[in-house]
Design a protein around this nucleic acid. Sequence first.
DNA 1: CTGTGTGAAGGCTTTCACAGCC
DNA 2: GGCTGTGAAAGCCTTCACACAG
Lengths: 206, 206
Amino acid sequence: MLKTEIPRKTIYRLSIFQRCLQRLKENKVETVSSEALAKAAGVKSTQLRKDLTHFGQFGTRGLGYNVAGLSGAIAEVLGSSRLQPVILVGVGNLGSALLRYGGFQKEGFEIVAAFDSHPVPARVKGLKTSLLNSTELTKFIREQNIKMVILTVPAQYAQEVVNELVAAGIQAILNFSPVVLEVPKNIIVNNVDLAMELENLSYFIR
Amino acid sequence: MLKTEIPRKTIYRLSIFQRCLQRLKENKVETVSSEALAKAAGVKSTQLRKDLTHFGQFGTRGLGYNVAGLSGAIAEVLGSSRLQPVILVGVGNLGSALLRYGGFQKEGFEIVAAFDSHPVPARVKGLKTSLLNSTELTKFIREQNIKMVILTVPAQYAQEVVNELVAAGIQAILNFSPVVLEVPKNIIVNNVDLAMELENLSYFIR
DNA sequence: CTGTGTGAAGGCTTTCACAGCC
DNA sequence: GGCTGTGAAAGCCTTCACACAG
Protein backbone atom coordinates (compact mmCIF):
# COMPACT_ATOMS: atom_id res chain seq x y z
CA MET A 1 0.00 0.00 0.00
CA LEU A 2 1.94 2.96 -1.28
CA LYS A 3 0.86 6.09 0.54
CA THR A 4 1.60 8.37 -2.36
CA GLU A 5 -1.06 6.71 -4.47
CA ILE A 6 -3.86 7.71 -2.16
CA PRO A 7 -5.50 11.05 -2.89
CA ARG A 8 -4.92 13.73 -0.34
CA LYS A 9 -8.60 14.53 -0.33
CA THR A 10 -9.31 11.01 0.78
CA ILE A 11 -7.02 11.48 3.76
CA TYR A 12 -8.80 14.70 4.66
CA ARG A 13 -12.15 13.00 4.54
CA LEU A 14 -10.85 10.19 6.72
CA SER A 15 -10.35 12.77 9.45
CA ILE A 16 -13.91 14.00 8.99
CA PHE A 17 -15.25 10.48 9.19
CA GLN A 18 -13.22 9.96 12.32
CA ARG A 19 -14.90 12.96 13.94
CA CYS A 20 -18.33 11.68 13.12
CA LEU A 21 -17.48 8.21 14.36
CA GLN A 22 -16.30 9.65 17.64
CA ARG A 23 -19.60 11.39 18.14
CA LEU A 24 -21.43 8.16 17.34
CA LYS A 25 -19.29 6.33 19.84
CA GLU A 26 -20.14 8.89 22.53
CA ASN A 27 -23.79 8.27 21.76
CA LYS A 28 -23.26 4.53 22.15
CA VAL A 29 -24.12 3.81 18.54
CA GLU A 30 -22.52 0.50 17.57
CA THR A 31 -23.25 0.21 13.89
CA VAL A 32 -23.60 2.75 11.11
CA SER A 33 -24.38 2.54 7.39
CA SER A 34 -22.27 4.31 4.80
CA GLU A 35 -25.38 6.33 4.00
CA ALA A 36 -25.77 7.64 7.55
CA LEU A 37 -22.09 8.25 8.18
CA ALA A 38 -21.64 9.98 4.84
CA LYS A 39 -24.59 12.24 5.55
CA ALA A 40 -23.10 13.23 8.90
CA ALA A 41 -19.80 13.97 7.20
CA GLY A 42 -21.43 15.94 4.40
CA VAL A 43 -20.41 13.69 1.53
CA LYS A 44 -22.02 11.09 -0.73
CA SER A 45 -22.16 7.50 0.53
CA THR A 46 -20.42 6.17 -2.56
CA GLN A 47 -17.52 8.43 -1.88
CA LEU A 48 -17.18 7.21 1.66
CA ARG A 49 -17.15 3.62 0.48
CA LYS A 50 -14.70 4.40 -2.31
CA ASP A 51 -12.41 6.18 0.12
CA LEU A 52 -12.34 3.18 2.40
CA THR A 53 -11.51 0.74 -0.40
CA HIS A 54 -8.06 2.33 -0.56
CA PHE A 55 -7.28 0.74 2.77
CA GLY A 56 -9.29 -2.45 2.87
CA GLN A 57 -12.74 -3.74 3.63
CA PHE A 58 -14.28 -2.66 6.90
CA GLY A 59 -18.02 -3.17 6.52
CA THR A 60 -20.49 -5.98 6.64
CA ARG A 61 -22.82 -6.18 3.66
CA GLY A 62 -26.44 -5.77 4.51
CA LEU A 63 -25.50 -4.32 7.87
CA GLY A 64 -23.00 -1.48 7.76
CA TYR A 65 -19.86 -0.61 9.71
CA ASN A 66 -18.97 -1.33 13.29
CA VAL A 67 -18.37 2.13 14.72
CA ALA A 68 -15.51 1.24 17.06
CA GLY A 69 -13.89 -1.03 14.49
CA LEU A 70 -13.94 1.51 11.69
CA SER A 71 -12.77 4.27 14.00
CA GLY A 72 -9.80 2.18 15.10
CA ALA A 73 -8.93 1.29 11.54
CA ILE A 74 -8.98 4.93 10.46
CA ALA A 75 -6.84 5.96 13.44
CA GLU A 76 -4.38 3.29 12.39
CA VAL A 77 -4.28 4.57 8.81
CA LEU A 78 -3.93 8.20 9.85
CA GLY A 79 -1.21 7.39 12.33
CA SER A 80 -3.19 9.15 15.02
CA SER A 81 -3.55 6.07 17.16
CA ARG A 82 -0.47 7.00 19.14
CA LEU A 83 0.29 10.33 20.82
CA GLN A 84 2.35 12.56 18.57
CA PRO A 85 4.59 15.25 20.06
CA VAL A 86 4.50 18.65 18.38
CA ILE A 87 6.39 21.89 18.90
CA LEU A 88 5.12 25.39 18.27
CA VAL A 89 7.36 28.13 16.92
CA GLY A 90 6.29 31.76 17.22
CA VAL A 91 4.44 32.66 20.41
CA GLY A 92 2.68 35.84 19.28
CA ASN A 93 -1.05 36.43 19.36
CA LEU A 94 -1.96 33.45 17.28
CA GLY A 95 0.74 31.20 18.68
CA SER A 96 -0.12 31.75 22.33
CA ALA A 97 -3.78 31.31 21.47
CA LEU A 98 -3.13 27.95 19.94
CA LEU A 99 -1.16 26.93 23.02
CA ARG A 100 -4.18 27.70 25.13
CA TYR A 101 -6.55 26.06 22.69
CA GLY A 102 -7.34 22.56 23.91
CA GLY A 103 -8.46 21.07 20.61
CA PHE A 104 -5.12 19.46 19.74
CA GLN A 105 -4.67 17.37 22.87
CA LYS A 106 -8.12 15.96 22.43
CA GLU A 107 -7.14 14.54 19.08
CA GLY A 108 -3.93 12.93 20.22
CA PHE A 109 -1.37 15.69 19.77
CA GLU A 110 0.68 17.20 22.52
CA ILE A 111 2.49 20.49 22.19
CA VAL A 112 5.64 19.64 24.12
CA ALA A 113 7.52 22.89 23.65
CA ALA A 114 7.15 26.44 22.36
CA PHE A 115 9.84 28.70 20.93
CA ASP A 116 10.01 32.39 20.21
CA SER A 117 12.77 34.80 19.26
CA HIS A 118 11.72 37.06 22.13
CA PRO A 119 11.23 36.11 25.79
CA VAL A 120 7.53 35.53 26.40
CA PRO A 121 6.51 36.54 29.91
CA ALA A 122 3.57 34.32 30.75
CA ARG A 123 3.66 30.60 30.92
CA VAL A 124 0.82 28.99 29.07
CA LYS A 125 -0.55 25.86 30.65
CA GLY A 126 2.69 25.21 32.48
CA LEU A 127 4.63 25.37 29.25
CA LYS A 128 7.53 27.80 29.32
CA THR A 129 8.43 29.39 26.03
CA SER A 130 12.06 28.82 25.15
CA LEU A 131 14.17 31.35 23.33
CA LEU A 132 14.43 30.58 19.66
CA ASN A 133 18.07 29.70 19.38
CA SER A 134 19.06 27.69 16.38
CA THR A 135 21.36 25.32 18.24
CA GLU A 136 18.94 24.69 21.08
CA LEU A 137 16.03 24.22 18.71
CA THR A 138 17.93 21.69 16.65
CA LYS A 139 19.07 19.87 19.74
CA PHE A 140 15.55 19.65 21.11
CA ILE A 141 14.09 18.40 17.84
CA ARG A 142 16.74 15.71 17.49
CA GLU A 143 16.71 14.55 21.11
CA GLN A 144 12.93 14.44 21.45
CA ASN A 145 12.51 13.08 17.92
CA ILE A 146 10.01 15.80 17.00
CA LYS A 147 8.49 15.41 13.56
CA MET A 148 5.75 18.03 13.50
CA VAL A 149 5.76 21.80 13.93
CA ILE A 150 3.07 24.42 14.24
CA LEU A 151 4.51 27.55 12.69
CA THR A 152 3.08 30.89 13.79
CA VAL A 153 5.94 33.31 13.19
CA PRO A 154 5.55 36.59 11.29
CA ALA A 155 5.59 36.17 7.52
CA GLN A 156 8.99 37.75 6.98
CA TYR A 157 10.78 35.22 9.20
CA ALA A 158 8.84 32.14 8.16
CA GLN A 159 11.15 30.89 5.44
CA GLU A 160 14.37 31.19 7.45
CA VAL A 161 12.82 29.47 10.44
CA VAL A 162 11.55 26.73 8.17
CA ASN A 163 15.01 26.21 6.76
CA GLU A 164 16.32 25.60 10.26
CA LEU A 165 13.47 23.30 11.14
CA VAL A 166 14.01 21.26 8.01
CA ALA A 167 17.74 21.06 8.66
CA ALA A 168 16.95 19.80 12.16
CA GLY A 169 14.90 16.97 10.74
CA ILE A 170 11.29 18.15 10.93
CA GLN A 171 8.98 16.28 8.56
CA ALA A 172 5.66 18.13 8.67
CA ILE A 173 4.69 21.78 9.11
CA LEU A 174 1.33 23.32 9.92
CA ASN A 175 1.94 26.79 8.59
CA PHE A 176 -0.12 29.78 9.68
CA SER A 177 2.12 32.40 8.07
CA PRO A 178 0.67 33.86 4.90
CA VAL A 179 3.65 32.77 2.85
CA VAL A 180 4.25 30.04 0.32
CA LEU A 181 7.04 28.06 1.97
CA GLU A 182 9.77 26.43 -0.03
CA VAL A 183 10.66 23.03 1.30
CA PRO A 184 12.26 19.82 0.00
CA LYS A 185 9.79 17.42 -1.62
CA ASN A 186 9.83 15.00 1.28
CA ILE A 187 8.62 17.64 3.72
CA ILE A 188 4.89 18.16 3.94
CA VAL A 189 3.27 21.52 4.57
CA ASN A 190 -0.36 22.29 5.35
CA ASN A 191 -1.22 25.95 5.07
CA VAL A 192 -3.89 27.64 7.15
CA ASP A 193 -4.40 31.22 6.09
CA LEU A 194 -7.17 32.81 8.07
CA ALA A 195 -7.35 36.06 6.15
CA MET A 196 -7.49 34.11 2.91
CA GLU A 197 -10.44 32.10 4.11
CA LEU A 198 -12.32 35.31 4.78
CA GLU A 199 -11.31 36.78 1.46
CA ASN A 200 -12.55 33.63 -0.19
CA LEU A 201 -15.91 33.90 1.52
CA SER A 202 -16.32 37.50 0.53
CA TYR A 203 -16.33 36.45 -3.11
CA PHE A 204 -19.51 34.47 -2.62
CA ILE A 205 -21.61 37.06 -0.84
CA ARG A 206 -23.89 39.23 -2.90
CA MET B 1 -20.06 36.00 -15.86
CA LEU B 2 -21.90 33.54 -13.67
CA LYS B 3 -20.03 33.10 -10.42
CA THR B 4 -21.18 29.53 -9.95
CA GLU B 5 -19.35 28.44 -13.06
CA ILE B 6 -15.96 29.41 -11.70
CA PRO B 7 -14.13 26.68 -9.79
CA ARG B 8 -13.72 27.28 -6.11
CA LYS B 9 -10.06 26.38 -6.37
CA THR B 10 -9.58 29.23 -8.81
CA ILE B 11 -11.00 31.65 -6.26
CA TYR B 12 -8.64 30.32 -3.60
CA ARG B 13 -5.68 30.79 -5.89
CA LEU B 14 -6.78 34.31 -6.68
CA SER B 15 -6.24 35.11 -3.01
CA ILE B 16 -2.78 33.59 -3.14
CA PHE B 17 -1.90 35.60 -6.22
CA GLN B 18 -3.17 38.69 -4.46
CA ARG B 19 -0.77 38.06 -1.58
CA CYS B 20 2.16 37.71 -3.91
CA LEU B 21 1.18 40.81 -5.83
CA GLN B 22 1.02 42.80 -2.63
CA ARG B 23 4.55 41.78 -1.77
CA LEU B 24 5.68 42.75 -5.26
CA LYS B 25 3.98 46.11 -4.87
CA GLU B 26 5.79 46.70 -1.59
CA ASN B 27 9.05 45.99 -3.38
CA LYS B 28 8.15 48.51 -6.08
CA VAL B 29 7.99 45.90 -8.82
CA GLU B 30 5.76 47.19 -11.61
CA THR B 31 5.55 44.29 -14.00
CA VAL B 32 5.54 40.54 -13.50
CA SER B 33 5.33 37.56 -15.84
CA SER B 34 2.91 34.70 -15.28
CA GLU B 35 5.98 32.52 -14.86
CA ALA B 36 7.39 34.57 -12.00
CA LEU B 37 4.09 35.21 -10.25
CA ALA B 38 3.07 31.56 -10.51
CA LYS B 39 6.37 30.47 -9.05
CA ALA B 40 5.91 32.79 -6.10
CA ALA B 41 2.43 31.41 -5.58
CA GLY B 42 3.58 27.84 -5.89
CA VAL B 43 1.61 26.91 -9.00
CA LYS B 44 2.24 26.38 -12.73
CA SER B 45 2.20 29.44 -14.97
CA THR B 46 -0.41 27.92 -17.26
CA GLN B 47 -2.72 27.54 -14.34
CA LEU B 48 -2.35 31.15 -13.36
CA ARG B 49 -3.16 32.26 -16.89
CA LYS B 50 -6.08 29.86 -17.13
CA ASP B 51 -7.45 31.08 -13.82
CA LEU B 52 -7.35 34.66 -15.03
CA THR B 53 -9.18 33.89 -18.29
CA HIS B 54 -12.31 33.28 -16.23
CA PHE B 55 -12.46 36.99 -15.55
CA GLY B 56 -10.92 38.67 -18.57
CA GLN B 57 -7.59 39.56 -20.09
CA PHE B 58 -5.18 41.38 -17.85
CA GLY B 59 -1.76 40.90 -19.38
CA THR B 60 0.29 42.30 -22.20
CA ARG B 61 1.76 39.70 -24.54
CA GLY B 62 5.49 39.68 -24.62
CA LEU B 63 5.63 41.70 -21.44
CA GLY B 64 3.54 40.33 -18.57
CA TYR B 65 1.14 41.81 -16.06
CA ASN B 66 1.06 45.23 -14.49
CA VAL B 67 1.32 44.50 -10.78
CA ALA B 68 -0.99 47.24 -9.56
CA GLY B 69 -3.47 46.65 -12.36
CA LEU B 70 -3.77 42.93 -11.83
CA SER B 71 -3.97 43.38 -8.06
CA GLY B 72 -6.82 45.82 -8.43
CA ALA B 73 -8.64 43.56 -10.84
CA ILE B 74 -8.38 40.59 -8.49
CA ALA B 75 -9.57 42.67 -5.53
CA GLU B 76 -12.56 43.65 -7.64
CA VAL B 77 -13.34 40.05 -8.48
CA LEU B 78 -12.94 38.84 -4.91
CA GLY B 79 -15.02 41.66 -3.58
CA SER B 80 -12.24 42.60 -1.21
CA SER B 81 -11.79 46.05 -2.67
CA ARG B 82 -14.14 47.50 -0.06
CA LEU B 83 -13.97 47.04 3.71
CA GLN B 84 -16.22 44.22 4.84
CA PRO B 85 -17.66 44.18 8.37
CA VAL B 86 -17.54 40.86 10.19
CA ILE B 87 -18.81 39.67 13.56
CA LEU B 88 -17.29 36.99 15.74
CA VAL B 89 -19.41 34.62 17.79
CA GLY B 90 -17.85 32.62 20.62
CA VAL B 91 -15.17 34.46 22.59
CA GLY B 92 -13.36 31.50 24.14
CA ASN B 93 -9.69 30.71 23.75
CA LEU B 94 -9.69 30.65 20.00
CA GLY B 95 -12.22 33.43 19.58
CA SER B 96 -10.43 35.93 21.78
CA ALA B 97 -7.18 35.02 20.09
CA LEU B 98 -8.61 35.79 16.70
CA LEU B 99 -9.88 39.13 17.99
CA ARG B 100 -6.35 39.99 19.03
CA TYR B 101 -4.89 38.65 15.81
CA GLY B 102 -4.31 41.52 13.42
CA GLY B 103 -4.25 39.57 10.19
CA PHE B 104 -7.85 40.24 9.22
CA GLN B 105 -7.82 44.02 9.33
CA LYS B 106 -4.78 44.03 7.10
CA GLU B 107 -6.73 42.28 4.37
CA GLY B 108 -9.76 44.53 4.49
CA PHE B 109 -11.95 42.92 7.10
CA GLU B 110 -13.05 44.56 10.31
CA ILE B 111 -14.43 42.63 13.25
CA VAL B 112 -17.09 45.11 14.35
CA ALA B 113 -18.61 43.09 17.20
CA ALA B 114 -18.09 39.96 19.28
CA PHE B 115 -20.74 37.87 21.01
CA ASP B 116 -20.60 35.18 23.64
CA SER B 117 -23.16 33.38 25.78
CA HIS B 118 -21.17 34.26 28.88
CA PRO B 119 -19.92 37.68 29.95
CA VAL B 120 -16.30 38.02 28.89
CA PRO B 121 -14.29 40.13 31.34
CA ALA B 122 -11.55 41.70 29.27
CA ARG B 123 -12.08 44.00 26.36
CA VAL B 124 -10.03 43.06 23.37
CA LYS B 125 -8.72 45.98 21.33
CA GLY B 126 -11.45 48.25 22.64
CA LEU B 127 -14.09 45.80 21.49
CA LYS B 128 -16.53 44.85 24.21
CA THR B 129 -18.02 41.39 23.96
CA SER B 130 -21.81 41.49 23.92
CA LEU B 131 -23.96 38.83 25.51
CA LEU B 132 -25.20 36.36 22.97
CA ASN B 133 -28.89 37.08 23.00
CA SER B 134 -30.83 35.93 20.00
CA THR B 135 -32.90 39.11 19.67
CA GLU B 136 -29.97 41.45 20.08
CA LEU B 137 -27.81 39.44 17.70
CA THR B 138 -30.47 39.46 15.02
CA LYS B 139 -31.06 43.16 15.49
CA PHE B 140 -27.35 43.92 15.17
CA ILE B 141 -26.92 41.80 12.06
CA ARG B 142 -29.90 43.40 10.34
CA GLU B 143 -29.13 46.98 11.33
CA GLN B 144 -25.44 46.84 10.49
CA ASN B 145 -26.07 44.72 7.40
CA ILE B 146 -23.55 42.09 8.51
CA LYS B 147 -22.98 39.34 5.98
CA MET B 148 -20.01 37.43 7.39
CA VAL B 149 -19.43 35.62 10.68
CA ILE B 150 -16.42 34.03 12.31
CA LEU B 151 -17.80 31.16 14.36
CA THR B 152 -15.72 29.96 17.31
CA VAL B 153 -18.30 28.46 19.63
CA PRO B 154 -17.94 24.97 21.17
CA ALA B 155 -18.98 22.17 18.85
CA GLN B 156 -22.16 21.26 20.65
CA TYR B 157 -23.67 24.74 20.24
CA ALA B 158 -22.47 25.42 16.73
CA GLN B 159 -25.52 24.24 14.81
CA GLU B 160 -28.07 26.10 16.91
CA VAL B 161 -26.07 29.31 16.75
CA VAL B 162 -25.77 28.89 13.00
CA ASN B 163 -29.52 28.48 12.68
CA GLU B 164 -30.00 31.82 14.39
CA LEU B 165 -27.34 33.49 12.29
CA VAL B 166 -28.88 32.21 9.09
CA ALA B 167 -32.34 33.32 10.20
CA ALA B 168 -30.89 36.76 10.86
CA GLY B 169 -29.63 37.00 7.30
CA ILE B 170 -25.96 36.00 7.48
CA GLN B 171 -24.56 34.84 4.13
CA ALA B 172 -21.12 33.45 4.86
CA ILE B 173 -19.59 31.60 7.82
CA LEU B 174 -15.98 30.95 8.67
CA ASN B 175 -16.44 27.94 10.93
CA PHE B 176 -13.79 26.86 13.42
CA SER B 177 -16.01 24.35 15.23
CA PRO B 178 -15.18 20.76 14.35
CA VAL B 179 -18.70 20.11 13.11
CA VAL B 180 -20.25 19.71 9.68
CA LEU B 181 -22.78 22.54 9.67
CA GLU B 182 -26.12 22.19 7.96
CA VAL B 183 -27.09 25.34 6.12
CA PRO B 184 -29.33 26.31 3.21
CA LYS B 185 -27.67 26.06 -0.19
CA ASN B 186 -27.33 29.81 -0.61
CA ILE B 187 -25.23 30.12 2.56
CA ILE B 188 -21.53 29.50 2.17
CA VAL B 189 -19.38 27.90 4.83
CA ASN B 190 -15.60 27.63 4.99
CA ASN B 191 -14.35 25.18 7.57
CA VAL B 192 -11.06 25.56 9.40
CA ASP B 193 -10.39 22.60 11.62
CA LEU B 194 -7.02 22.89 13.27
CA ALA B 195 -6.91 19.46 14.84
CA MET B 196 -7.84 17.96 11.50
CA GLU B 197 -4.95 19.68 9.80
CA LEU B 198 -2.56 18.14 12.30
CA GLU B 199 -4.17 14.75 11.95
CA ASN B 200 -3.79 15.05 8.23
CA LEU B 201 -0.10 15.86 8.54
CA SER B 202 0.51 12.92 10.82
CA TYR B 203 -0.51 10.58 8.02
CA PHE B 204 2.40 11.70 5.91
CA ILE B 205 5.21 11.39 8.42
CA ARG B 206 7.19 8.18 8.47
C1' DC C 1 11.67 36.78 -29.74
C1' DT C 2 9.17 36.97 -25.44
C1' DG C 3 5.21 35.97 -22.98
C1' DT C 4 -0.07 35.89 -22.92
C1' DG C 5 -4.50 33.56 -24.07
C1' DT C 6 -6.82 29.27 -25.18
C1' DG C 7 -8.71 24.92 -27.51
C1' DA C 8 -7.55 20.23 -26.93
C1' DA C 9 -5.51 16.41 -24.39
C1' DG C 10 -4.58 14.24 -20.32
C1' DG C 11 -5.20 13.03 -15.55
C1' DC C 12 -7.62 12.85 -11.42
C1' DT C 13 -12.06 12.54 -8.53
C1' DT C 14 -16.61 11.74 -8.13
C1' DT C 15 -20.68 9.42 -9.28
C1' DC C 16 -23.22 5.67 -11.28
C1' DA C 17 -24.77 1.07 -11.70
C1' DC C 18 -24.77 -3.16 -10.22
C1' DA C 19 -22.52 -7.55 -8.61
C1' DG C 20 -21.82 -9.88 -4.36
C1' DC C 21 -22.50 -10.96 0.41
C1' DC C 22 -25.04 -11.01 4.90
C1' DG D 1 -34.13 -7.12 1.29
C1' DG D 2 -30.46 -4.26 2.59
C1' DC D 3 -26.05 -2.50 2.24
C1' DT D 4 -21.14 -2.91 0.95
C1' DG D 5 -17.45 -3.09 -2.58
C1' DT D 6 -16.04 -1.86 -7.19
C1' DG D 7 -15.35 -1.55 -12.43
C1' DA D 8 -16.95 1.72 -15.75
C1' DA D 9 -18.68 6.35 -16.99
C1' DA D 10 -18.96 11.06 -16.25
C1' DG D 11 -17.32 15.29 -14.75
C1' DC D 12 -13.87 18.41 -13.35
C1' DC D 13 -9.33 20.42 -13.21
C1' DT D 14 -4.71 20.75 -14.83
C1' DT D 15 -1.31 20.68 -18.30
C1' DC D 16 0.16 20.85 -23.02
C1' DA D 17 0.92 22.89 -27.39
C1' DC D 18 0.67 26.51 -30.03
C1' DA D 19 -1.60 30.66 -32.14
C1' DC D 20 -1.15 35.34 -31.63
C1' DA D 21 0.12 39.99 -29.94
C1' DG D 22 3.62 43.43 -28.57
